[in-house]
Design a binder for these strands. Structure first.
Lengths: 338, 338
DNA sequence: TCTGGCACTCGCGTACGAAGAGTGCCAGGC
DNA sequence: GCCTGGCACTCTTCGTACGCGAGTGCCAGA
């Protein structure tokens, strides 16, 4: 077990390294933080921390830098979440309040996060799986061609064309529309399949084919739209990554282009609370020198999607976590209001 | 005026420099291209080309590299557009054929372009201004609440809620729907305003308010949606930019995040044919060391949007132009089919 | 257990010289 | 008149050497 002072030394190393981007030595530590002990003592502590794998030295006779394990300890035990200042909070709220629709909310959130954290921001669109249906509309474009429109509680609108196996009368259409809405309006997506299962039975034989087609299109929409989209921003902040550029930045850019990777990344994060994945804790190899801070957000108490930032492992964790949490909270509010 | 041979020398310089990324000297030129003259002669030609501002040397006693002006001449007079090979064409078509909706078409196009050119691809969503209306649908969600759905010939669907000043009966709704479609279906967006202008007059006084509201919502949709969206991809290719990394790449990433800049960039390009903007020809400062190859594409003969790539001025112009043209053509076909 | 001292190790910046690539220019040849 | 070979000159690049500074590890003493 590490003594209290050693933990303080580790904390000081992380803070200094994050600030200066340079390996930090024993002397500098005692000068910048009043630890109450001499450099020599700190050196001993550092040697111990190195033995435990929390810090490492890039070369002999250079200062120490934290390892992934060191950052992990820092995040878990040594650092809190730095709350946003009131002015920052107001700025966040003002900025998000101007949004006109869902796309805009997401776009603004991305910009905001990128700006606040000076890192790459990733925002998932509110997922449909946990959303509820606000309304389903059906309209006939031609005798055997319908349009299905799905409106979700997050304000998202999805539409599909449906080619019917047989002509479908206006009265049948009105009937189906009414029955469909009475069953699914206000219900969660996940519940829809079982709720509409027996719906064809309520119709005349000649209409059943069409009803089934409509229903399967609806279910498809739910599933397909579950292939979540996301938006990223702040990639220019990648240039602040490190000195050894192309090597570090390239795989990150590649990862950012692979939506699948990102979605997995966010998906892996725990459902509640904030998740921080540091360096090699990220499954995707290209992100081994980055940390990902993510959190769920949603309109109600429940998270319907995630957002987060990707930055160098050498990042200001308390500040980043504070910004991520605050943004997630306000986005949730905005979604709840609209 | 430059002699034929000097043009050949310039062409050779551009080709070699694009290939090697290194300043090219007189000796190497005579070895790699059989110009039929000695290095000394080439040196004279190079001196002349430098006087004219087509090439420059980074330092005294280094080889020459083309200037923006040199690339311009190369593109205008010396290089054609390199057509895609049949296998490449097939690959393009196959890749795009798999698309399921407009978003998917755009997403696939971006990936494809980025992959083919190994540069950053930018694809604008098909614009609505030049599209035509396929269908307008109206449906009532509540006595005084309508939903307006606009379907375009490019397969895009936009919807808006309309709060009516007064309740609007089903028969009036059907009437409006029919009249609206008979007037605007198949017509171009730009023509819609004048086509619906006098529509309220055909209705009873009590319904006119609602009709006007619907119409203005429709017109708003047309205008608003003209705020075009775009998608970018292949940013990882930026790492192949040059050796002097952060300085070059940062402003480009920033530019790519500014949709406004990109839209302007594409917008400035001529309406017909391919446009190549080289280095300082780009108005936006951050893109002064990049070239932008863009072209319009559309479902019919007419361009409804633009797409292109952003890469270093030192790019393979014939190949890039070939890829951009081919992709634009196939995307046009796909849009026309759907 | 902490502290001061000391020798040791490297990385970094600078300086210097040799090598190599490329140029410009000039005189001579077709 | 144009092309060519030759030659001197300029710069960049690379390897080596060297001194400086920062930082460490260890040890003896408080």
């Amino acid at each position: 077990m590490l003594s209290e002072r050693r933990l303080q030394v580790l904390r000081a190393i992380v803070q200094d390294y994050v600030g200066t981007e340079e390996p930090v030595g024993s002397k500098a530590l005692t000068e910048r933080h009043n630890l109450g002990v001499s450099p020599a003592t700190v050196r001993n502590d550092m040697a111990a921390l190195e033995d435990e794998g929390f810090i490492a030295q890039p070369h002999t006779s250079a200062g120490r830098i934290p390892t992934d394990k060191g950052y992990r300890l820092f995040v878990d035990k040594l650092a809190g979440v730095k709350p946003m200042s009131p002015p920052e909070r107001r700025a966040i709220q003002n900025f998000l309040d101007g949004a006109v629709d869902l796309d805009d909310v997401v776009a603004r959130t991305v910009r905001l996060l990128a700006q606040l954290t000076r890192q790459v921001a990733v925002v998932q669109y509110p997922s449909l799986t946990r959303s509820t249906v606000r309304h389903v509309e059906l309209l006939s474009l031609a005798p055997a061609r319908l349009m299905l429109v799905l409106i979700t509680d997050t304000g998202r609108v999805e539409q599909r064309m449906v080619d019917c196996p047989a002509p479908f009368g206006e009265s049948s259409l009105a009937d189906l529309r009414a029955r469909l809405n009475s069953r699914v309006a206000g219900r969660r997506f996940a519940d829809v399949p079982s709720l509409v299962e027996d719906l064809p039975e309520a119709f005349e034989a000649e209409d059943r084919g069409t009803v089934s087609t409509v229903l399967s299109t609806l279910l498809e929409t739910l599933v397909e739209e579950n292939e979540e989209r996301l938006m990223i921003g702040g990639t220019a902040n990648l240039t602040r990554f490190g000195h050894d550029f192309p090597l570090t930045i390239r795989p990150v850019l590649e990862a950012l282009e692979e939506q699948v990777v990102l979605l997995k990344l966010l998906g892996e994060a725990g459902d509640s609370g904030m998740t921080v994945r540091i360096g090699h804790e990220n499954a995707y190899e290209g992100l081994n020198s980055t940390s990902v801070v993510s959190v769920g957000y949603g309109s109600g108490g429940e998270a319907v999607a995630k957002l987060g930032v990707v930055g160098p492992t050498r990042m200001d964790y308390p500040g980043t976590m504070g910004a991520v949490r605050a943004v997630a909270r306000y986005v949730g509010q905005i979604l709840a209001e609209s």
